[in-house]
Design a protein around this nucleic acid. Structure first.
Lengths: 335, 335
DNA sequence: TTAAACTGATATAACGTTATACCTTCTGTC
DNA sequence: GACAGAAGGTATAACGTTATATCAGTTTAA
């Protein structure tokens, strides 16, 4: 039973040296058409696939990057990942996607696994409460790194984010223009900047219009939690007529919760989501939400990493993607 | 600016040889407590992380596996991936998840990327119409491989699947016992075995009860497609009173479509899904579906791969996971 | 007292590539 | 026909680990 083919196998089969075989496979150096053909035939013959480990060790070029995020099973994030993969894969990179579940310990383990095996680059959403030594680990390892969605304490890295403040500011003003005066911010728990910025946009808009003080109601970013918590919120604060959500999943959950109680989203409580996941437009009623084109964000992210890999001395970049309100049917004038 | 630390750095820092440093890091060989401490301190000092490429080249043990699936952004598959990752990560493996989008060319590219970089093992759902040379590529590369959900032509590999026939057979009988006589099979397009088996279970049950000939209505496994197609189906075949779906996403889509037209799932058309994704129980009305515990399937899958990696001479295994009907509110007696 | 066994460390080769330098052979020029 | 230069190929070292053999001391056994 033959072992897996290496360059040696190919070279032997083609009757040339290993060095020559290597040059042919990479299309470099001066090689006659005849030799080229012989080597390529031999390679096809034995189903040769280069060993990326050996290649990258010698050449220093690692075509393997990691993507470490706090939650994979979230349609918005899935779209981001899609955008990242599409671009990086056409450039010949292998993308390893890992889920930290927003847990710093789990994140640390993943990070070390990535540093061991996929050290070509890193796309990273820092978990909440990421300790400083995790940042310094990355710094000493000198892996090209781009943070996204959250920057955490990784101020030294490139970053691709969302215009959170502007988005929730505008969304809140929209609710105000519909006559709402008691508006809550609903969802999310961790003190991550993305949420902090969103809350700031919301709070600022309230203040600018001289409305009652902000009410922030935390809960996990899942449908199930949204469903449950919206009822608690309404029981405890019956004056609330509109909620601005930290994400579509809680928003959709809230919409479901309302309907379970026989109420109508929009008419009985205005709801604005954040992300514009596929379900947002498919839900009944379709969800008013803030859209950020996650796929484009992913591509921008990949592009930023590639630039960084190609030139480590580039100035640190900080890209913010615009977000805009999409009005569907869960917002209505206040009654 | 110092470069990334290697064993050499650690050894120099600790005043020992590279060989000794290596032994300490791996906890092998005979090392005095004093030396051990010195090396570990030095390693921590410089933030040392081993280079898995070099290690695996020499030791032959690759702690990196690939998972190649036809659709990542599907809650059922996401759960499977979760189960796989949890088990493999505690065993120190890095799992690279790739999405073939059920396209053989894309799949081929991914496979070659994996063979280049993550050749420790492969978990694989063959794309539809996977050509024979893709199978033989894997065979010559001798990467431990386990197929799941679909076997394709990869008869030589270990496999973890679902009892599809039994599941749809039972589900169809359930519909029949509710009095339905005109039942359609709804969703899925590709001639993959999982769907073929499901259709066979459905067809067999119909035949056993002497019911009208089967009606199979293909459509992509997405909510949007389900929504659209259920209306077409009803327009063209008004006699249908129940549909058995190839997946929850189409089933949920169908449920939405019905409601858009003011009809009530269950009362006006019985719907059974397949997968029991999280949304199935959260939807209104909650979806009757076939559950297969995707997380457990994922763990079983990982376990199978580990066994194969540990002993390449093991007899080929073929595990089938049971599936059972969960009755919620989209099925009702035929009126 | 001396060989044998053990302890704790190290030197070295190897994994499969690629970059570099080098070595032939051929062609053309004067 | 001597020599420069190009064309086409190869030998070799290196990447960062780990497995193996080996070595110098020290202890134990007979």
């Amino acid at each position: 039973m033959p072992n897996r083919p290496t360059l040696k196998t190919v070279a032997r089969e083609a009757g040339v040296s290993i060095a020559t075989a290597s040059q042919v496979m990479r299309g470099s150096g001066r090689i006659s058409e005849e030799t080229r053909r012989k080597v390529l035939d031999a390679a096809r013959q034995v189903n040769y696939v280069a060993d990326g480990r050996a290649a990258s060790m010698r050449s220093g070029e690692i075509r393997e990057v990691g993507l470490l995020i706090h939650q994979i099973a979230n349609p918005f994030n899935a779209e981001v990942i899609s955008g990242v993969s599409d671009l990086l894969e056409t450039e010949g990179y292998l993308v390893s996607v890992l889920d930290s579940r927003d847990d710093p310990n789990r994140q640390r383990r993943h990070l070390e696994a990535l540093l061991r095996s996929a050290r070509g680059g890193l796309l990273w959403v820092p978990a909440r409460d990421t300790p400083p030594d995790t940042y310094s680990l990355l710094a000493t390892q000198r892996v090209p790194t781009v943070t996204f969605l959250r920057r955490g304490q990784g101020q030294a890295f490139d970053h691709v984010g969302i215009m959170n403040f502007e988005a929730t500011h505008a969304a809140t003003e929209h609710l105000i223009s519909l006559g709402h005066r008691h508006i809550a911010f609903f969802g999310g728990e961790a003190p991550v900047e993305s949420r902090v910025e969103r809350i700031r946009g919301y709070t600022t808009a309230l203040a600018e219009h001289g409305l009652p003080p902000p009410l922030v109601w935390p809960c996990p970013d899942t449908k199930a939690a949204g469903l449950e918590n919206v009822l608690k919120l309404r029981a405890q604060h019956p004056e609330i007529t509109a909620i601005l959500c930290n994400g579509d999943m809680v928003a959709l959950g809230a919409s479901l919760g309302l309907q379970r109680k026989g109420e109508v989203p929009g008419r009985d409580l205005s709801i604005i989501g954040f992300d514009d996941v596929e379900d947002a437009s498919l839900a009944t009623p379709p969800l008013t939400t803030i859209s950020v084109r996650p796929y484009d964000l992913g591509r921008k992210l990949a592009r930023t990493l590639l630039d960084r890999i190609r030139d480590p001395d580039l100035p640190r970049s900080n890209v913010l993607i615009a977000a805009h309100l999409i009005q569907r049917e869960t917002t209505a004038p206040c009654r």
